[in-house]
């Protein structure tokens, strides 16, 4: 099993950091275990980009069109997308024409720097991009609305977030506003009890906006610090469902002025270029303030994150690396790109 311990019956918590609060963990995890886990996820069944590039650059290669086409395909195979890939390759071409490259390391280094630039540049559009500020909000109750398409991993992400906030000493309340999918509330309820936090739910088919309102009022009455609202998965093309989302958003603002303080879009890393359209639609409907990328523990590289961040100009806060409650990690652009290449 090795690197797959997160799944199955016995998730082995990292003893060295487990008893520290999450924010303290971030720095320690970032450099060591997170990177390892990240890397192991990103490098599993397939050879990494570096291997592929290395095999390309073996011996006396020529930086001709065929070579650049192949590089482009390597980038595309990481879901980075045609446009961004072409951009990066164009820059590489310019650079080659100006100075030339002798070593494959130079080619790789150049590509890495390019992708990192992309991420940094886009993250810089938002002032508070680090996970720490996300975990220590100033207002109470602080309302986080979680949105995304079906099966992206919203409920699991909420469970992980609930645990993190709970461990930070915050009083957490979950709002099960996914009243549509069969047993969605039950699923969240099980997570709530595992994370030891409260939950507000209603019967199946109930009005999600009303539930969101009730949860907000309950949060005010109970002196809750963090409210996390789970919404039903919806394809961004369903006009009625997107309108419903708008309503939930609006109602939250009525219950608590300024709420939701955070609208978190959950993206599945295995999604291809459709993620960009999804993100845009959700952005246009309720406005997205943060992104979580889930399922990065498979072989999907999640390269579409680059384009999504560019389009939305909002930071990726966390990544999901498994099904257990501890598998939520802060996003780090350099680590992300580094792992893409390892």
């Amino acid at each position: 099993m090795g690197k797959l311990d997160w799944h199955g019956a016995t998730p082995a918590p990292d003893r060295s950091t487990a008893d520290l609060p999450f924010t303290h963990q971030i720095n320690r995890i970032c450099m060591a275990s997170l990177f390892e886990k990240f890397k192991s996820g990103l490098a599993k069944t397939r050879a990494g980009l570096v291997d592929e590039i290395s095999s390309l650059v073996k011996g006396n290669y020529e930086m001709d069109d065929a070579f650049l086409d192949q590089l482009e395909e390597i980038l595309i195979s990481a879901d980075i997308g045609v446009e961004t890939s072409l951009n990066v390759i164009e820059n590489l071409r310019d650079r080659v024409n100006r100075e030339g490259f002798d070593q494959k390391e130079e080619v790789i280094g150049f590509l890495k720097a390019q992708l990192c630039d992309h991420l940094h540049q886009n993250a810089a559009l938002s002032s508070e991009s680090d996970a720490g500020s996300f975990l220590n909000p100033t207002s109470t109750p602080h309302v986080i609305m979680v949105i995304g398409v079906n099966g992206a991993g919203k409920t699991t992400t909420i469970a992980k977030l609930a645990k993190v906030f709970h461990e930070e000493g915050k009083k957490v309340l979950l709002a099960a506003a996914d009243t549509f999918r069969a047993a969605a509330s039950e699923q969240l309820e099980i997570w709530a009890s595992r994370a030891n936090v409260d939950i507000v739910r209603t019967q199946a088919g109930g009005d999600p906006a009303a539930l969101a309102f009730d949860a907000s009022k309950a949060a005010l009455a109970r002196d809750v610090d963090i409210v996390i609202v789970d919404t039903a998965g919806r394809l961004h093309t369903k006009v009625n469902l997107m309108e419903e989302l708008k309503k939930i958003h609006r109602v939250l603002g009525k219950a608590i002025p300024g709420s939701p303080h955070e609208t978190l879009l959950v993206l599945d890393a295995t999604t291809g270029q459709n993620a960009i359209i999804q993100a845009k639609q959700f952005q246009n409907t309720v406005g997205v303030t943060s992104i979580v990328v889930t399922k990065l523990d498979g072989t999907a590289k999640g390269g579409m994150v680059l384009s999504v961040q560019k389009e939305l100009g909002v930071p990726v806060r966390f990544i999901g690396l498994g099904e257990s409650m501890d598998d939520l990690k802060p996003f780090d652009a350099d680590t992300f790109v580094e792992a893409l290449f390892e």
């Binding site: 397939r46 398409v149 599945d268 295995t270 999604t271 072989t299």
Partner: peptide, 15 residues
Amino acid sequence: ADGMTGQDAVNTANE
């Protein structure tokens, strides 16, 4: 398989 899957679809399907 999720119809929105990207390049990873073939890795998963193959395995």
